[in-house]
């Protein structure tokens, strides 16, 4: 599991804005944070090697539940500690093909 809680705590932002996944070699995850609602947002870039799971930010930001669940569903990646990760929200199939991470 890839640990990111300490990196996110160092940024110390008020709000998590978005979680984005890009399918490349290696798989990339971008987190965007907003601090004091300023113009420029803080960005955190994480590389995820194949087959690894990622620590969830749900203990710091409560709205990470749905943002991480959307990325999890699209790419097949698991966020440890998020109860909605792995649930089907937007589609009807059990496993993913094509855009899938695994």
């Amino acid at each position: 599991m890839i640990k990111i809680l300490s990196k996110a705590k160092r940024i110390s932002a008020d709000r998590l804005v978005s979680v984005t996944g890009i399918k490349e070699e290696p798989f990339l995850l971008y987190y965007h944070f907003s601090k004091n609602n300023q113009l420029k947002m803080k960005e955190l870039k994480i590389e995820v090697p194949k087959g690894e799971s990622v620590e969830s930010l749900i203990s710091l930001y409560a709205n990470a539940e749905i943002l991480e669940a959307e990325t999890a569903e699209m790419f097949g990646i698991t966020f440890e500690g998020n109860p909605s990760s792995g649930k089907r929200l937007f589609r009807e199939e059990k496993k993913c093909t094509g855009q899938c991470f695994q």
């Binding site: 009807e92 199939e93 993913c96 093909t97 094509g98």
Partner: peptide, 14 residues
């Protein structure tokens, strides 16, 4: 809200 990319066939679970 619903613009996520999808993936192919399967049975409905709704």
């Amino acid at each position: 809200m619903e613009r996520v990319a999808v993936i192919k066939k399967g049975k409905t679970e709704v």
